[in-house]
């Protein structure tokens, strides 16, 4: 094992995902409320339940594990969820779980997230500007790719968190053309997309692990 803390280890990914699970559990009502106004209200419950399901598996992941091990646990839990967003998050984490079997540098991380968001766009049949989770995922990837030579993963993810938060906020004024919110049309204007917000929380959660460490 490397002690090089510029690269994301399995233990880092484990802590990151557990911090994300904590954040979603703490603020699930906010996701539910957003989804009630723009969808059918089951998003928060689906995601929080999936992350609760992942928690024991994540906790059992040893310190010597690699990033794919942690992302696989998150993927499996989301793939077992109902609705549309749950399986798409499962796909996103599932593609991360197919990333390199060694600690990830900043550029490796950028590459893994790029591949993951491409799969979500393709199978979700969506792209940026349609008031979905990819409105936070795509800007995050762009931020990760912005400094390809910067090796430290934490700096890259902190930039991605800011970009994802901005991307989520930008969904407020969008008219949904995909997903459940498209059925309510103008009624969802002024409401942040809960999927995009969850993505922003995910990237933010990495910073929370440093604060805790």
């Amino acid at each position: 094992m490397t002690t090089d803390d510029t690269r994301l280890t399995g233990a880092d990914a484990r802590a990151w995902l557990l911090a994300y699970a904590d954040r979603v559990r703490r603020d699930v009502d906010e996701l539910t409320d957003l989804d009630r106004r723009a969808g059918d209200g089951d998003f928060g419950w689906n995601i929080a339940t999936a992350l609760d399901r992942a928690r024991p598996t994540l906790t059992d992941i040893p310190d010597t594990a690699l990033p794919p091990d942690a992302f696989r646990a998150a993927s499996d839990a989301h793939l077992g969820a109902g609705g549309t967003s749950g399986p798409l998050f499962g796909l996103w984490f599932g593609r991360l779980a197919q990333g390199p079997g060694e600690p990830w540098s900043g550029p490796a991380l950028a590459h893994a997230f790029q591949s993951a968001v491409q799969a979500v766009c393709r199978l979700g049949n969506t792209d940026v500007g349609q008031k979905t989770m990819v409105d936070a995922m795509v800007p995050a990837v762009k931020a990760l790719e912005a400094e390809p030579l910067a090796p430290a993963w934490r700096g890259a993810v902190a930039r991605a968190a800011r970009a994802a938060a901005d991307g989520a906020e930008a969904t407020r004024d969008m008219l949904a053309r995909r997903g459940r919110a498209s059925y309510v049309g103008e009624h969802a204007r002024g409401v942040v997309d809960p999927g995009a917000l969850a993505v922003a929380w995910f990237f933010q959660a990495a910073a929370d692990t440093r604060a805790a460490a």
Partner: peptide
């Protein structure tokens, strides 16, 4: 279609 395609992709 979504769930089968996601499974296929992974």
């Amino acid at each position: 279609v979504l769930n089968f395609r996601i499974a296929a992709e992974l």
